[in-house]
Every structure is written in C-alpha cells, then in structure tokens.
Design a protein around this nucleic acid. Structure first.
Ligand SMILES: [Mn+2]
Ligand SMILES: [Mn+2]
Ligand SMILES: [Zn+2]
Ligand SMILES: [Zn+2]
Lengths: 155, 155
DNA sequence: TTATTATTGAAAACGATTTCTATTATCGTT
DNA sequence: AACGATAATAGAAATCGTTTTCAATAATAA
C-alpha cells in the first residue's frame, strides 16, 4: 500500500515558469494556481472563479481565463472541450499524456493511455507525410454505471 | 478512370428527413441544404451564410446555425471543432465515419480511417466497461507542404 | 525611489445559442 | 382548389461562454 499517491506539487512550479519567461509573479496568479492545484481534474473556469473569489474578492473572470491560458502555455494545464459547452482545464504537471472516455449521461470523465493506439496514429501520419505535434482522442458514450442501471447521476 | 467520383446527392435527401420527422420543408431549409451540398467539406456557418445570402437576402445567421444543427440531428452533417475558433460542418451523407489530420500552419484538413485503431478503441472501452456511442480522433501538426518548405499558405 | 513595463478588471466583442413574437407551412374542412 | 385553424419556424434581439481591448494599477529593475 502506497502513501502520497500524487507527489506534492512544488509551490515553486509556477514561480519557476514565471521567472523563466520574465513575467510577473502576481498575487492573482499565485492564488489561481493554488486553487487549480487543489481542485478536482477537469474543472471549468467558472468553478475555479467561484473558489478564487473567496480569497480574492475583486478578481475578474477575464483574469481567470487569461491565467489558465498562461498555465497551458507553461505546460501545466491543458484546455479540453468535452462538448457540454464549457472548457475544462486538465492539470498535467504531474501526469503524462492521456486520452479520455466521456459519459454523456452522467458526465464522468475517465482517463486512459494506450501506446498501441499512439503508435498506429504515427503510422497513419507517416503515410500522409504529416508530422504530429499533438492529438486528441475522445470516446463518448455510457459509463458502466449508466448503462447498467439506466438512471445516472445527472439529468 | 471513374466518372462521378461522388454520387449525385438526391435533392430528396433533405425532404425525406423533414417529412419523416413531421417538420416543415421551408424555402430557407431547401436553400441552405443546396448551398451546403455544393460547398467544400468542413465549411463554417459564416461561409455558408455568405453563400446563402446571395439567394435569400433576408435570412438570419441564427437560421443558418439552427438549420445546420438540424442537418446534424438528421445525420446529414457533423459539427467539428478544429481549434481555430470556428465550428466546421462536415457533410456525411455520402461518406462513412472518418477522423482528421489538421495542419496548424496552413489549415489543411485531411480525412483518414483506420479500422485497427477503431478496434483498439473498443478494446479500451471494454476494459473500462464503457459503451462507445461516438468518438473523435484529431491529429494536429504539419502537413507535408508545411514541414518541407516551411512557409505555408496561411499566416 | 523612480521608471519601466506587464498585468489587471471593466467593458466591448466574438462565435454560437436561446428566447420571443410575427410569419408561414401544413392539414382538415369545404 | 381555396380557405381557416394550428403549430412549427423565421429573424431580431438577448444571452451565453470566452477572448480581446484598453486605461489604470502594480511588479520589477535601475
Ligand atoms: Mn485528463
Ligand atoms: Mn471530415
Ligand atoms: Zn455515466
Ligand atoms: Zn499545412
């Protein structure tokens, strides 16, 4: 049995990126990162906003979006669209590349990785003389819970 | 050498769906479908709008979006987000499921299908006791033109 | 400290969707 | 075929989630 399933996130992780890029270590960026690190995976900007507001009551929603965009450029987060009309932010500082299973009934998002698929993607690209920079594989359908006892947690 | 690469689209294709669903065969729906069928693959609502305006000068952009949404529900089109901030509509009445290679330099979109990958997706789903309804695989990077002579057609 | 910039929050703009009322396609009746 | 009732649809305007613009503010370096 393991302890510390997830390695503790260095509070310096953001500072490092900020300094490396000659940007400014503002109160807002610190607070947004702290909140982002503390929340569940695949949260929306709105969810982060409501949490940040508790400590930083004068912050604007545009700062949240801008700062999450910054985290993405730093490689600390990735923005994802799972088709519910809200962009979700995936923390990727402690996890390598993965793809997603999305339950359209209850909204559950499951992560997976499959090296076999990734190799075949490269093969497809090679045939088209295409160089892959990044990719996205999303499987939409019903999770075990939702197709077993049909009701589901959401609408 | 073949003639008629693409089978001619039945003008009745839309009418059939409209009648089957007890909806109304309006002038606007006919015109939007005619334009959609005549245009390139993966066009935006705005591009369709500009074309439809030539024949139907009083039409609203919301009707374009609504009607394209209708085509999607009918299985005649699919909406796709390739990350340039515009939803693109893929005609699928004459083509079976496929995935996409997207050049982030020049915007070129190439279609492909790979049964091997599709089977592995099912395998992943089975392991998670997940039932796939639909999926999306998008490979982003540089097309042959763009990584050979670096300039590209777009900005 | 001051000067130099990057960053902030408010407001405007964007692409897309929804709401609302006037219009119109369809159907049952002549 | 023409009518009238009725329910779906159209276009305008409002709204949504997100991005951009811009003047005021604040982090950094001199
Ligand atoms: Mn994830
Ligand atoms: Mn396509
Ligand atoms: Zn579910
Ligand atoms: Zn290209």
């Amino acid at each position: 049995m393991r302890i510390n399933m997830r390695a503790p996130v260095q509070p310096t992780l953001l500072k490092t990126q900020i300094t490396r890029n000659h940007l400014r270590f503002t109160r807002q960026r610190q607070e947004i990162f702290k909140v982002f690190v503390g929340m569940a995976r695949h949260v929306t900007a709105e969810e982060i906003y409501r949490e940040v507001l508790k400590k930083e009551s004068r912050i604007g929603l545009s700062t949240i979006y801008r700062t999450l965009g910054l985290f993405c450029r730093f490689g600390l987060a990735e923005a994802r669209q799972f088709g519910d009309g809200h962009t979700r932010y995936d923390p990727v500082y402690d996890k390598h590349h993965h793809d997603h299973l999305i339950c359209t009934q209850c909204g559950e998002i499951t992560e997976f990785e499959n090296q076999h698929i990734e190799r075949l993607q490269e093969q497809v690209a090679r045939r088209h003389r295409f160089v892959i920079r990044r990719h996205k594989l999303e499987l939409y359908g019903l999770c075990a819970d939702c197709h077993d006892h049909g009701s589901g947690k959401r609408g």
